[in-house]
Write a protein that binds this DNA or RNA. Structure first.
Lengths: 136, 136
DNA sequence: ATAGAATATTAGATTCATCTAACTTTGTCA
DNA sequence: TGACAAAGTTAGATGAATCTAATATTCTAT
């Protein structure tokens, strides 16, 4: 079911970042505006605007004129998945490699786009197993 | 000693890829041409040309008109370091997470740019320790 | 209800990374 | 030694991602 989408829909890292940011903000806010995303990612409003326009063209988000940003089901799914990779990587870096939290955060954010579904699953298992049998 | 350079010299992922490719080819060939790099990275000649031009402007490589590509000391150092990160990540993915080699190769190549010197050192230690006490 | 603040939009520029097509130089071998 | 192949160069286009500056809309609080 995803194969069809995945081929058409190979997103850039940056598109994934925007999707992830919107996903996270959606979990905290009632409504997500361009300004929220801009703050979250440290970019300017027009930059967010053009990213959202591109995501809109791909059918991953909706935004009415002067309106809030809403994730479509596929956008939500991708955002959630990117965040899952982000979290697994951050935990691996921070709790297993003992990289400081801030740095783990930053580097996880850069690595999260590189990791496939299969690898993510393996990483999650590894992290889980490692934690349950008290290593380190 | 590196701080000065590192600030001026924040390379894009792609610039790092080219440097790494040239570094690897240098270890195999006598002389590295644009065509070798193009083959290695799967891009066209003009693309390599413009990348090399940019790396030349940064003083990381040299190339005379119609000549071969030569890494300058700093370029060599960066290329070697990127490759070190690449290797550590590939080994982690392949030998510890049991991700198939081809996929480990690809994903390491994407992650290698995200990882700082400190994190790399930690990852290398982790991989080493993991391997010496026969886990899995 | 409206003025001022906050937010969103548009226009236009820049840089990187890529491509194709056309051209030039170098190198080789018959 | 000169024709042809291989390698390198240049020109020009495209798209993503970013910015600043200017403009438009919406919200809010008096």
């Amino acid at each position: 079911m995803n194969l069809i989408f995945y081929n058409i829909m190979s997103l850039t890292s940056r598109e994934e970042d925007y999707l992830e940011a919107i996903y996270l903000l959606t979990g905290r806010h009632v409504a997500v505006g361009l300004t929220d995303v801009a703050r979250e990612l440290g970019v300017t409003l027009p930059t967010v605007k053009s990213a959202v326009t591109r995501l809109k063209e791909r059918g991953l988000v909706d935004q009415k004129h002067y309106g809030k940003i809403v994730l479509n089901p596929m956008g939500h799914k991708i955002g959630a998945e990117i965040y899952r990779a982000h979290r697994a990587l951050r935990v691996f870096l921070n709790e297993i490699l003992r990289v400081p939290l801030e740095i783990s955060e930053t580097e996880a954010c850069l690595m999260e786009h590189a990791i496939s579904k299969d690898t993510l699953k393996k990483l999650e298992c590894f992290v889980h197993d490692y934690q349950t049998r008290d290593n380190g």
